[in-house]
């Protein structure tokens, strides 16, 4: 329960911090950190425009997408405290529930019959497919390391002892951070600020969404950021008491947001046709983690 509330709280300022960081780096004043949420609330109050090509799929898809993200957040634990949902193998549920949301966002893009949105949908489907193995191998390595198969048990019994484990921590953070960027269609993979439909991935999929639906989709992005931030924070919380973990949680969320902002300020988007290969490399990084775990457990024989 505690993780759910804290992630919702973090989601309110997360994208704000990213935008703020980017504006400071580029020497602008920039909006306040609550601006993205204010935008969402403004969208929630608006009416909607629907394409005449669309069907009921387009109407229900944003709700299912939003529900899937909320459901995934419920699975995320908070250090030693369970999430609302917790069972053995819950990270499989986590990944598949997010995939359900993705399925619907893709078919809702195809529902508009637009060539742009089809293009974005095609890219999104391919990229998320390539990002998935990295996450599973990462969780598999942790399951091997801790002997547990649920998020909460894994994170609660994960502790850093030897020097290898620090490297593993760094690598795991890297993998999770990059998965976040892929899943949220952010900088090295996709540029959310581009103005050309042909170069967009996620933004072009939601061209025809408006009003309440668009608000939900945008807010789901904030939630997803905070959710992955929480996963990264979980790597470092261990079994500390609450008065330590809550500051750690917010500290890591803010640090992560600033890092994303800096990354977006100083890197350019990759070439579209090389993205798939790049994302696939994440799996090999996860494989490194797996071998690191084997090394730690002394199973190389």
């Amino acid at each position: 329960m505690i993780s759910f509330i804290l992630i919702i709280l973090a989601s309110i300022f997360f994208t704000g911090i990213i935008i703020r960081t980017k504006s400071i780096v580029t020497g602008r004043k920039g909006p306040g950190i609550f601006q993205p949420v204010k935008d969402v609330i403004r969208l929630w109050k608006k009416g909607a425009v629907y394409s005449k090509t669309t069907s009921f799929i387009f109407q229900i898809a944003p709700s299912i997408y939003f529900a899937s993200v909320l459901m995934a957040i419920m699975v995320v634990p908070f250090g030693q405290y369970k999430g609302i949902i917790s069972f053995e193998g819950d990270f499989v549920f986590f990944a598949y529930v997010l995939a359900l949301g993705k399925f619907f966002s893709i078919i809702s893009a195809l529902d508009t019959g637009s060539s742009f949105e089809g293009m974005g949908a095609s890219r999104e489907a391919l990229y998320s497919m390539f990002a998935e193995p990295a996450f599973f191998i990462l969780m598999g390595s942790f399951a091997l390391l801790t002997g547990k198969t649920s998020f909460q048990e894994i994170f609660a019994s994960l502790h850093f002892g030897s020097s290898i484990s620090y490297i593993l921590g760094v690598l795991a953070t890297f993998v999770l951070a990059m998965i976040t960027m892929v899943e949220n269609s952010r900088m090295p993979i996709d540029d959310p600020k581009t103005h050309l439909e042909l170069t967009m991935v996620h933004e072009v999929m939601i061209l025809d969404n408006s009003g309440f639906d668009l608000g939900m989709i945008l807010y789901a992005t904030n939630l997803k950021f905070a959710m992955y931030g929480a996963l990264i924070a979980n790597l470092f919380m261990g079994s500390f008491p609450l008065y330590l973990t809550i500051p750690i949680f917010f500290g890591i969320q803010i640090l992560f947001a600033i890092a994303v902002g800096l990354l977006e300020s100083f890197t350019a988007r990759f070439r579209m046709n090389h993205n798939a290969q790049y994302i696939f490399v994440l799996s090999s990084v996860s494989l490194l983690i797996f071998f690191g775990v084997l090394l730690m457990l002394g199973r190389f024989n």
Binding site: A48, V49, P62
Partner: peptide, 21 residues
């Protein structure tokens, strides 16, 4: 969520247009 969306958008204006191209 779908029910809430329906309740909130019930009074809002809805326009039907061609797909953005």
């Amino acid at each position: 969520i779908f029910f809430i969306r329906k309740k909130i958008t019930a009074q809002k204006s809805v326009a039907i247009t061609p797909t953005w191209s």
